[in-house]
Design a protein around this nucleic acid. Structure first.
Lengths: 206, 206
DNA sequence: CAAAATTTTTTATTGAATAAAATTTTTCGC
DNA sequence: GCGAAAAATTTTATTCAATAAAAAATTTTG
């Protein structure tokens, strides 16, 4: 049995997040005030604070919703028969960037990254990192597939490899959003350079 | 000829940054107010704003000062005769973490990362990224040395490799400061795992 | 239906950030 | 050196995020 109280709370949460997304997209993060969001959602400003702690908290909540979709999307779109690590990772990186830009602009993504860093121990940040982890695992799974198909040396630890690739991709993603005029192509090139350099540096296989 | 005005301005800058460092370290970032800093430095709060824009701006200014020292330190301490990439990078990472912790605590470093992300286009953030770039180049130089000494395949692009290694190290550094109880050893292990996985995944050299 | 429990709203305060006006200090030509 | 002009700081005022405590409203439960 869901009590009335629980349902109302849920409704308010939904309204707050939905209205926040609309306002953030329309007016930008800075120009949207907590009061604006509260008014649009039909609650008081303090209630927004009670629910999400900070303005960035509201932002994180909506990003987390969207990112859950990204995982599904990547799980479907990431090729299972990739020939090499580079192409796999670049495909992954494209998926992440496309998805990000489709939902929020760079200025707002910078706020997201800042928020999960400063409030790294908050409930919402942990949820965010949890999703990052799942995202990295999509990559790990594909690498396992490649290893089984003999396209990757058997002595490679695919879990470590997947996480490393994810980190690299993430670093470049942050670079992508950190400047308004850095293009996806530019970032793709850099990531490709990272990967080819690293992979070619291993050398001397027996 | 340095005018009196220029000298006074310089003095004020120095006082603000020095007092801010003392206060941030003693009371923490959040509990230190701009007014506290201003009072300690003998100026008005608005002057601090005029000089550095934001509280985070003051923090960045002092971090930039310290990071210049880090570059010198690493340039000296990073071994020129490293046998492999892994040991070189781990040494580098240690240097960065040790230096960071020696100057400010993790909570404050989180503010630094957040600040350079949100205000990615500000003067101070650009200066910060510039130092990051120089830092990465210390690594690049060592790699060049290794390549010349025949400890690295000649077809490896050391500039790309150095930047990639730096990014990876940086990602792990951010992870290091993101939780108060993550140790340097723990991070070293993770970075080692990243590197060995990536380097072993390259394979099939002719 | 009424008391108890829960939640939201109201009210108030602190501090960052920003802008404009007022004041002080330095500079520079004479 | 003096005084006007220029430059910088301080004062004053405002908006908004964040937080806390008290008050009010609503739901739950016996």
């Amino acid at each position: 049995m869901t009590t009335l109280r629980a349902r109302q709370k849920n409704d308010r949460r939904k309204r707050i997040v939905a209205e926040a997304k609309t306002l953030f997209r329309r007016d930008g993060y800075d120009k949207t005030t907590i009061e604006n969001i509260a008014e649009a959602a039909g609650v008081s400003g303090v209630t927004v604070h009670n629910y999400y702690g900070t303005k960035a908290g509201v932002l994180l909540a909506l990003v987390i919703e969207n990112d859950a979709l990204l995982i599904d999307k990547l799980e479907k779109s990431l090729p299972r028969d990739a020939n090499d690590i580079v192409e796999l990772t670049l495909h992954f990186a494209r998926g992440v960037m496309d998805h990000a830009i489709a939902h929020l602009d760079k200025q707002i993504w910078r706020q997201v990254i800042a928020a999960v860093t400063v409030e790294a121990n908050s409930r919402l940040s942990k949820a965010y990192f949890q999703l990052d982890h799942q995202l990295a695992y999509v990559l790990v799974q594909r690498l396992e597939g490649m290893q089984k198909a003999g396209r990757l040396p058997v002595d490679v630890d695919v879990e470590h490899l997947g996480k490393a690739l994810f980190h690299l991709q993430n670093a470049r993603f942050i670079q992508f959003i950190s400047s308004d005029d850095r293009t996806e192509d530019e970032i793709e090139t850099r990531l490709r350079n990272d990967l080819t350099a690293l992979l070619s540096a291993g050398g001397r296989r027996t």
